[in-house]
């Protein structure tokens, strides 16, 4: 079963300057995939295009077998997609509870309060002060709220853009722990990460994006050899990596 597939997707902020230059891949249901690549490669742009936040200029996106190319984000979310952007991923002027309540609106009325409670229990840092403005949270706590919000609706496909960015090692371990548990429940996971080792340990398969194109697509085991990745991440050897 295919959870998500991209076919020759082209996207960016200006049609004359595509950032994502024709990317194709298919993610199976329940698979955990990480997307790696140097800064500026277009990872965030690609995942935002999938989530309906950046306009695509060509190609298609299928979610659970349905063509969702060009659909608005809220339609995708209602079709089982969860997305946590890299930055600006919570509403700072709303309280923690209000952030969760907005997402919970997609659930049947009788399930809402219970799911919000479950999320507040899962992240005690949030649960200890639900009425506080989300803007008062620390960087790590914001990531927790962003993740809690996305998990609340139990999406089939969960995409996270650098959920561990700026977190302390302890919190990174906690985030990856949570993600592992989520992945084990059968949720399809797509993770953009700079934290390569942790990402590789969590996922079955790695995609490497360099300059808007896929430079590698294969099982994570093959990438544990540090040399290849080192070259990719230094950026200067990226051309060779494509070959």
């Amino acid at each position: 079963m295919t959870a998500l597939s991209l076919a020759d997707l082209q996207a960016g902020y200006d049609p004359d300057l595509p950032i994502v230059k024709g990317v194709s891949f298919t993610v199976k249901k329940g698979e955990a995939v990480c997307i790696l690549g140097p800064n500026g490669a277009g990872k965030s742009t690609m995942i935002k295009a999938v989530a309906g936040l950046v306009r695509s200029f060509g190609g298609q996106v299928h979610l659970g077998g349905r063509d969702v190319t060009g659909l608005a984000s809220h339609v995708l979310v209602r079709n089982g997609m969860g997305f946590v952007p890299q930055t600006e991923n919570i509403f700072t002027r709303l309280s923690i509870t209000e952030n969760l309540q907005i997402a919970a609106q997609l659930l049947p009325r009788q399930d809402r309060a219970g799911r919000i409670e479950a999320m507040l229990d899962m992240f005690p840092d949030l649960g200890s002060r639900p009425r506080e403005l989300a803007g008062a949270l620390s960087g790590g706590q914001r990531q927790m709220l962003a993740a809690a919000r996305a998990l609340l609706t139990e999406p089939q496909v969960l995409m996270l853009d650098e959920p561990s960015a700026g977190l302390s090692p302890k919190l990174v371990a906690q985030v990856f722990d949570t993600l592992r548990r989520i992945s084990q429940t059968g949720v399809t996971l797509i993770l953009v990460e700079q934290n390569v080792r942790a990402a590789l340990a969590l996922t079955d398969r790695a995609l490497v994006l360099v300059d808007g194109k896929l430079a590698h697509d294969g099982p994570t085991d093959a990438l544990h050899d540090g040399k290849f990745l080192g070259e990719l991440f230094l950026g200067n050897r990226a051309d060779e990596a494509i070959r």
Partner: peptide, 15 residues
């Protein structure tokens, strides 16, 4: 209030 802070993110929240 969500849309007034960030319309794109509101869509991602399902609004």
């Amino acid at each position: 209030r969500a849309v007034s802070e960030n319309p794109g993110l509101a869509g991602v929240y399902g609004v």
